[in-house]
Design a binder for these strands. Structure first.
Length: 650
DNA sequence: ACACGGCGC
DNA sequence: TATCCGCGCCGTGTA
């Protein structure tokens, strides 16, 4: 037995296993009543769900587990498929939701068997009770599943996955944390459901096997959150956790569940057109090379063709060869003595990439993600995905839908409001939020003044840098590169690449920039040294990002760390601002009993689906509450537009 | 699994 | 000596 073994753990091979002796399966009314009473008097409980899949919008609920601490846990099976004989079902519980036979349980059954509806009906008020704090690991998943099964949850006080990421832990899975904190090796789910083609769903796992697994999840969800509390205090993470991330969690769940309507006919039309265009481009490329079969996706092959056969000058190196990215290829097109075949091949590759990227990533994929029941696309927002505090989005990534090209805008126009029923989309975005935050953080007088006067910031920067009243488009362009470059920890080379200037000229512009904006220069130096001293960079709200690389002996690693240190407070504070706005707006929409709902967040932009007749009120509410989310020394400005689709708004 | 290229902010 | 600006996700090819 290891020293650290507490109650509820048994030793095996140096590591520990959860001790199932305090785990219970709830199969009778009496046991359920006892569980509900225990949860009510607990002062807080951890819970977890077992389901049939990883997509919470499509997963079927199989069971729920609970723990109130002390190593005790309960499993309430509500959706295991019968393994033997016909079984009772609850009214409306439908097919395949029967309970297992009594023989499947290790505990004696008293009274009539519980149905799913019995169980959920008893648990519903406990989940809804805002006076009882709840704990879960990755609560986004469980909240979504349970909401889809008619159970709303109030007062999720701590999500141990979110908390673990806020305190700077790298491994934030429940099983990782159990191992690191308690030296307990939890059973992987694949021990129950298998892997690959033979994998089964949890509803096919016998209750007696699922129960200890599920109980361990709840048990350790409780223990881990308990162990995280001192870390949260030590890392000063309580404010961000309690006042931003936890209140945001149900808002995000609401957005995911709301989803967004997709106009499939726009996409299928585009798909056919793109297929024809792509075939034509492939034909052209092949024709330029004397009818040879080419795979325009295979950069290695194309590179060999261009550089070795056609004598095209080699481009910038990558780890594995020479870059074939669009920037480099476009530069090659400018070469005087470029082989004619190479010219046509490069042209074809660039077009091919644009079209095939659009087709495979968006046009053909989005319709596959439409939910069969809701008819909408339900993206997942990851609250702990990024190092700076930004949200990320998957399935689909709704935060990188094209916007610049005409074809990209057509993809956006496939995202629409339910306008057949009078709904509209409203989009509101913070203008120049990161530069405003830079102004606030640096207190650079010229930047502050420009924003207070409501000036075009890139114009203002160009005027300051060049000492002119009238700014040329080229001067503004360079000022813009520098303004954004500062946020990313710019270097002379980066500026040169972006502006087609030489490195020397790039450095001159940087010197000019810092000469006019000494407050920014001082701020950057301050952030770097402070982050190095403390070991982390932080936002206005105290959100931290650990940066051990700032003390690395490796100059390159250190420089990369410095760029992260510069970027984190700016990008992270912007993330804080919009998260606070989301929480406040969601609450206000509910208070006013509006039907309109937030559906999408794209870093500095919020999109709402607005109910018939609510546009004026929601517009006013959003454009008031977004700027008010955080009080800075510069005003936050929000621009809003609306329309039937995301691609067609004014 | 990894590298690359490419889309967003 | 070459350096190549932050944060993401995804599809493809190459192992």
């Amino acid at each position: 037995m290891t020293e650290s073994t507490g109650e509820g753990e048994v030793a095996t091979r140096g590591l520990l296993k959860p001790d199932a002796s305090a785990y219970h399966t709830v199969t009778t009314r009496a046991q359920l009543n006892a569980l509900v009473a225990a949860l009510r008097s607990s002062g807080g409980f951890a819970f977890d769900t077992e389901t049939t899949g990883i997509d919470p919008m499509r997963a079927e609920l199989v069971g729920l587990s609970f723990s109130t601490g002390g190593g005790a846990a309960w499993y309430v099976p509500v959706g295991h498929k019968a393994l033997a004989g016909p079984l009772p079902t609850g009214e409306g519980s439908g097919e395949g939701r029967a309970q297992p036979t009594d023989a499947a349980h290790s505990e004696p059954v008293e009274g009539r068997p519980l149905t799913r509806e019995d169980a959920l009906a008893s648990l519903r008020p406990v989940f809804a009770d805002a006076t009882i704090p709840k704990y879960a690991h990755n609560a986004n998943y469980d909240l979504t599943v349970l909401a889809e099964h008619g159970i709303d949850i109030s007062n999720v006080a701590l999500d141990s996955m979110i908390a673990a990421s806020l305190v700077g832990r790298r491994a934030i899975g429940l099983k990782d944390l159990a191992l690191e904190m308690f030296k307990v090796e939890m059973t992987p789910i694949t021990d129950l459901i298998g892997t690959g083609r033979k994998q089964i769903t949890m509803d096919r796992v016998p209750v007696e096997a699922a129960s200890p697994y599920a109980c361990a999840d709840a048990d350790f969800a409780w223990r881990v959150q308990d162990r995280l509390r001192p870390e949260i205090d030590r890392e000063n993470a309580a404010h961000v956790l309690n006042d931003i991330e936890m209140p945001l969690l149900p808002v995000i769940v609401g957005m995911q569940r709301a989803g967004v309507l997709i106009n499939r006919s726009v996409l299928s039309e585009m798909s056919e057109q793109l297929a024809a265009d792509i075939a034509a481009i492939e034909h052209e490329a092949s024709g330029a090379m004397g009818g040879r079969e080419l795979n325009l996706n295979a950069n290695q092959q194309i590179a060999a063709l261009l550089f070795d056969e056609l004598g095209v000058p080699r481009t910038r190196r990558t780890k594995t060869g020479f870059t074939m990215d669009a920037n480099a290829l476009e530069a090659l097109l400018e070469k005087e003595d470029l082989d004619n075949r190479a010219y046509h091949l490069i042209k074809a590759i660039l077009k091919y990439r644009e079209y095939s990227k659009l087709k495979s990533t968006y046009v053909d994929t989005l319709p596959e993600l439409v939910h069969p029941r809701t008819g909408r696309v339900h993206t997942s927002f990851n609250q702990v995905g990024s190092a700076t505090g930004r949200l990320s989005s998957t399935n689909p990534n709704i935060q990188n839908i094209p916007v610049r090209t005409d074809l990209g805008k057509r993809v956006r126009s496939a995202f629409m409001a339910d306008h057949a029923n009078g709904w509209l989309l409203l989009s509101a975005d913070y203008s120049q939020i990161e530069l405003r935050i830079l102004a606030h953080l640096s207190q650079e007088p010229h930047l502050l003044e420009a924003f207070k006067q409501g000036e075009d910031i890139h114009n203002a920067t160009a005027r300051a840098m060049y000492g002119v009243e009238k700014v040329t488009p080229d001067q503004r362009r360079i000022a813009k590169v520098l303004n954004f470059g500062v946020i990313y920890g710019l270097g002379a080379h980066g500026v040169a690449v972006q502006t087609d200037l030489t490195r020397q000229q790039g450095q001159q512009f940087i010197d000019m920039y810092f000469g006019k904006y000494p407050g920014v220069r001082d701020y950057i130096e301050r952030v770097k040294s402070e982050a190095r001293r403390k070991g982390y960079a932080e936002t206005v709200t105290g959100r931290r990002r650990r940066l051990p690389e700032l003390r690395s002996p490796n100059q390159q690693l250190r420089a990369a760390g410095e760029r992260m240190a510069i970027n984190m407070p700016v990008q992270g504070t912007a993330a804080d601002v919009i998260k606070i706005a989301m929480i406040n707006i969601d609450a206000e929409l509910k208070t006013r009993r509006l039907r309109s709902r937030m559906t999408i967040q794209v870093h500095d932009e919020l999109i709402f689906e607005v109910a018939p007749g609510e546009m004026d009120e929601v517009h006013a509410l959003v454009t008031t509450m977004m700027p008010a989310a955080m009080s800075l020394t510069v005003p936050l400005n929000v621009e809003a537009k609306h329309g039937r689709t995301w691609g067609d708004m004014e």
